[in-house]
């Protein structure tokens, strides 16, 4: 029997975000991200002045795009995309030219100076392949992130995207980002 097609994506309900940064720390611990670099971050935005004031927190990481420009520009094919949509870097092929970092509209990549290669969020493939969810998803105390397979009609993210309004960031770059922000 042929394997069922998969398309992993992340739904983010940023109104639930407390800016506790547990996701950032969990990611660093899980993926041994070098000091000074992060694979995910929480954007902060302040509107207005006291007393009419609001602050928004918006977690962000690699959008694992449908048409990833980082993969397109890579001269050696080190940046590549799995059939299930996860965008990865093959560290043995990466020459460290950083063209992908420039091509990414979301600034999702960082340069690992020690190894001389580019690195990024992997959706924790090592966990996902075992049937678990990424570390940032698991650790979030307020359940901001929902990870799942868009091809699975019974998945929670399919239900969320069918019943809630959402946006994606900078769709005009044509990358087809797969982080869905609930409104």
């Amino acid at each position: 029997m042929a394997m069922k097609k998969k398309r992993y994506a992340l739904v983010i309900d940023s109104r639930k975000c407390l800016n506790c940064k547990a996701c950032v720390v969990a990611c660093k611990a899980e993926n041994k991200v070098p000091v000074g670099h992060f694979r995910n971050r929480i954007n902060e935005e302040r509107k207005g002045e006291y007393p009419t004031l609001s602050i928004n927190f918006e977690p962000e990481q690699c959008h694992h795009c449908d048409e990833p420009s980082c993969v397109r520009v890579c001269p050696t094919g080190a940046s590549w995309q799995r059939k299930d949509g996860i965008v990865l870097v093959n560290y043995d092929e990466c020459i460290g030219c950083r063209y992908c970092m420039i091509a990414c509209p979301y600034d999702a990549r960082y340069f690992n100076e020690e190894e001389g290669v580019v690195d990024k969020c992997t959706f924790c493939v090592q966990r996902v392949d075992k049937g678990e969810v990424p570390a940032c998803v698991e650790t979030c105390p307020s359940k901001v992130r929902v990870f799942g397979d868009l091809e699975d009609p019974k998945s929670r993210i399919r239900e969320l995207l069918a019943t809630r309004r959402y946006k994606v960031k900078e769709p005009q770059t044509g990358n087809g980002p797969q982080l869905y922000y609930l409104l």
């Binding site: 520009v73 001269p75 050696t76 092929e93 990466c94 020459i95 460290g96 100076e113 001389g116 290669v117």
Partner: peptide, 17 residues
């Protein structure tokens, strides 16, 4: 980042890049 890997540029031809 890895200058000695530059030869990998010539192990591939990627017309999109």
């Amino acid at each position: 980042g890895n200058w000695y890997r530059f030869y990998k540029l010539f192990m591939h031809f990627r017309w999109e890049s």
